[in-house]
Design a protein around this nucleic acid. Sequence first.
DNA 1: TAGCTGACTTAATCTACCTTAAGTCAGCGT
DNA 2: ACGCTGACTTAAGGTAGATTAAGTCAGCTA
Lengths: 166, 166
Amino acid sequence: MTSSLIGLLADRDSWRSERCSAARALEVLGTPANLLVLREAFYGTTYFQDFVRETPLSEPAMAKRLRELVDVGLLTRVPYQEAGQRTRHRYELTPPGEELMVAFFALMEWGDRHAAPDGGPVRLRHRDCGAQVHPRLSCTEGHILPPGEVEVVAAPTLLSTVAADD
Amino acid sequence: MTSSLIGLLADRDSWRSERCSAARALEVLGTPANLLVLREAFYGTTYFQDFVRETPLSEPAMAKRLRELVDVGLLTRVPYQEAGQRTRHRYELTPPGEELMVAFFALMEWGDRHAAPDGGPVRLRHRDCGAQVHPRLSCTEGHILPPGEVEVVAAPTLLSTVAADD
DNA sequence: TAGCTGACTTAATCTACCTTAAGTCAGCGT
DNA sequence: ACGCTGACTTAAGGTAGATTAAGTCAGCTA
């Protein structure tokens, strides 16, 4: 078994989809297209036309996605003005948006490993030390662990029913 | 700026969506529903009915998702037989499927932080030391770093054009 | 003040994936 | 051999999000 479910299996009902944090994250991300747009943002894209150019999305779709991502607080519109041009807006990651990078980079690494023969077209580098960066599972004791060593346990502080711990 | 794009910006075209590993991963994941199903698998679910019960998906949709996930190699059908029952199949994560855990858990942690008031209903624990586990960006020098310290660089070994490295 | 341009919006249409409601089918127990 | 049951499949219909093709609109340039 890959990850063990520790704790009250009965409690399982208390964290079905409605309560699953990842499910909520997925609601926010909404559609795969939103992740495509975020990818662009992670790569540093901020201009509308660049978003359109770098993704397979059409203008109307992109406008919609960007608006949605701004609405949920992953991007912000920031005004800018180029010489001789009128004021326009760029789209920048908010801190919550930036925090999705870990998940995104994990996805990317997975894609590199399983869909790209040569390891993929981009690398992640630690700005401060230059070493390569990877998303990993890390425990508070400082261990880096493989997925197989993770146990999924019910959170200890559920208001109601936590009597039958092991 | 959140993450800097180092290397040839011109090379940017060489790793647009078609080549982006994460985009490929997204293709495989396909629909948000697939991630829901995988979530269940990560939590330890293996039986068809359990998948149906624990997610908002209907039977036909679940059958379709499971088949697709088996087809792309994230799950395998393994036969089993309960006493007095005919042979049926469970759905187990394959190693590639298991490797998606890092991405999934990162999504979950993000959801915990931004959508769950109390930190979410489940915790991750290191089987061997009991400490809490978090998805993190880790560099090969052993640093755990925030997303802001990551630089996205073009991969060094693209067959063709890599002259202008820094 | 008229025109240009980038950033959208609107409209019509298509498709993918969902739903519910019925089948279908394999094979164990009787 | 017959029926039951869990695991699907089929069918009909809905909705969300995509596409292309045209607008619209703000505001700097001329």
